[in-house]
Amino acid sequence: MERKFILLSLFVITSVFVWFIFFNNKPLPLEEVIAQEMPFFEKKEIIHIEKFDRFALVISKANPDDLTNHSVNTEHTVPVIDFFVENNKNGWSFLNSSWEAPRSYTDHLTSFIKFLPLEENRLITFGDINHPEIHNVKIKVGDEYLAANIIEDTYGNKTYFLVHEPENDRLIKGYSEAGNIIFEVN
């Protein structure tokens, strides 16, 4: 009887150990880590996810309907960039969140700058498009203007972003649908 108990106990312990090693340590997918790790996830709307080689950036905005702080301007919410890094053993993990003071804040375009993790010479320029007639945004990098990506949230608010090399004299231009310059930000 005692021998059966020891064999049964050994079998159970071995089974739990094998399950833990092979089935419990699965790398977490990015979407699961986003839901677990993003600060105030339930109050944000994910408007874009961009994956790179070793990291991902998630652009989100607070939902104006959910904001309870009356000192927050809910007409134009600030886009937030959250960074996640990929680790082959553990999957994805949260690195940091960036909500920074705007480089410029106007009624037409906002401009934020953030260096990318694990990338020495690349940054992201991003911001809100607050003028209804701005349909395109271009950022001067070197001697050329590069078209920024434009994304829209469920409220119809537009955010632009561009990953690029650092530039000392960055110029951001907002264009109408016809190609006329509506606003510039230095």
Rank of each mutant, 00 (worst) to 15 (best):
L146A: 03
E165F: 10
F23G: 00
W19C: 08
I13T: 11
I113V: 13
L146Q: 14
F83H: 09
E42A: 12
L95K: 10
I134W: 05
H48S: 12
I13V: 15
K89L: 15
L57P: 00
V163I: 15
F161V: 09
N87D: 15
D128Q: 12
Q36M: 10
K43N: 14
F52H: 13
G156V: 02
R54E: 11
E100H: 08
S104F: 03
F22N: 06
W92F: 05
R54F: 07
D107S: 13
V58T: 05
E120P: 03
I182M: 04
T14M: 12
I124S: 03
S60V: 07
L7R: 12
E31S: 14
L28P: 00
E42N: 09
I49D: 01
H131C: 02
I182Y: 07
L109S: 06
I21C: 01
F55C: 07
F20Y: 14
L57N: 08
K51L: 11
Y145F: 15
E120I: 06
H108Q: 14
S9K: 04
N168H: 07
S60F: 01
E167L: 03
H108R: 11
D65A: 13
E144G: 02
A178V: 04
E32M: 04
L67G: 00
G156F: 06
G91F: 01
E100R: 14
K89V: 15
M1R: 08
K43Y: 12
W99A: 13
N96E: 12
V18S: 05
L8Y: 02
E184Q: 11
I47E: 05
L171H: 08
Y105S: 12
V80L: 13
V85P: 00
Y160R: 10
K61T: 15
H76D: 10
D107H: 12
M38A: 04
V78F: 02
S98T: 11
S111Y: 10
S111N: 07
H70P: 09
R122N: 10
W92S: 12
N180D: 15
D65T: 10
T106Y: 03
D82W: 00
A101Y: 06
V12G: 00
S111I: 01
D153Y: 05
I172N: 02
E31M: 05
N149Q: 14
W99H: 06
I13K: 05
S111P: 00
P27T: 09
L146H: 08
I81K: 07
A178I: 02
K61Y: 05
K4N: 13
E165W: 03
L28S: 12
K51D: 08
D65E: 15
L28Q: 13
K26M: 12
G142N: 06
W99E: 11
A178Y: 01
H164N: 13
D82A: 09
A56V: 06
E100S: 15
E184W: 02
N96M: 07
E42D: 08
H164E: 05
W92H: 07
V185T: 06
W19N: 10
L146M: 09
V163D: 08
N168M: 09
N73K: 09
T68F: 02
F161T: 08
N168P: 03
S98W: 01
D153I: 06
L123P: 01
I113D: 09
E133S: 12
G127D: 04
K44M: 11
K158Q: 11
